[in-house]
């Protein structure tokens, strides 16, 4: 999950692409990549789930971990690109109450 900053007009936003599904077999690698990306200075982090079709409970744990890391660093956090199935799962666990989630 390489970190990128493609938004030239908003240089303080860090976009973190999911790089695929966030499930048991992938979360550890995704977590490591996301934490490396978050090491760069930024004012806001965006997790892009455009490439993710499935997020399981361990994936949700990963998202919550990123959210809490951003909170500690006083960085804004939001999720973008979630499909309808993912939104159902996120709502099941009240994630939209914690941070903004933009549906695909």
């Amino acid at each position: 999950m390489p970190s990128t900053n493609p938004s030239s007009n908003d240089p303080v936003t860090l976009r973190i692409p999911s790089g695929g599904n966030l499930v048991a077999s992938t979360v550890e690698a995704r977590r490591k990549a996301a934490m490396e990306a978050l090491a760069a200075p930024c004012a806001e982090a965006v997790l892009d789930l455009a490439e993710a079709e499935v997020v399981d409970s361990l994936g949700i744990t990963l998202i919550l971990g990123l959210f809490k890391t951003c909170q500690q660093r006083k960085i804004g956090f939001r999720v973008e690109g979630a499909n309808a199935d993912l939104m159902r799962v996120f709502k099941l666990f009240s994630l939209p109450k914690l941070f903004p989630i933009v549906e695909r």
Partner: peptide, 10 residues
């Protein structure tokens, strides 16, 4: 909502 674990069985 922010608890990190325990969602699998629910």
């Amino acid at each position: 909502a922010s608890s990190e674990r325990g969602r699998g069985i629910p």
